[in-house]
Amino acid sequence: MIFDLLLVAALLWSAVRVLTTPDLFRAVVLFIVFGLLMALAWARLDAPDIALAEAAIGAGLTGALLLDAVAHLHKKRQEQSP
């Protein structure tokens, strides 16, 4: 029960932080954290299939794509304002 409440609190906190952080890189890392916490929540809800998919696709693959996009944006911005 305490664990579940902590999990909900951490989920809401990371969701708010993802949306409010001005730093894109940090936002992406927080998004991955959110995805992993979400996978835990699915596991707690007795939905291990969704937990697996969330961890692999939601946190892993989307996270990698977003990180790459941030690096690309960063490079582009540097080129525009040397």
Partner: peptide, 25 residues
């Protein structure tokens, strides 16, 4: 393993495919 496990426990093609993709990346 995840592909094979899909028949009798959580797992299956999509999750196994995501792991393969992760290996590629």
């Amino acid at each position: 393993y995840i592909l094979w496990a899909g028949a009798h426990r959580p797992g299956g093609a999509f999750q196994a495919g995501a792991v393969l993709a992760g290996a590629g990346v």
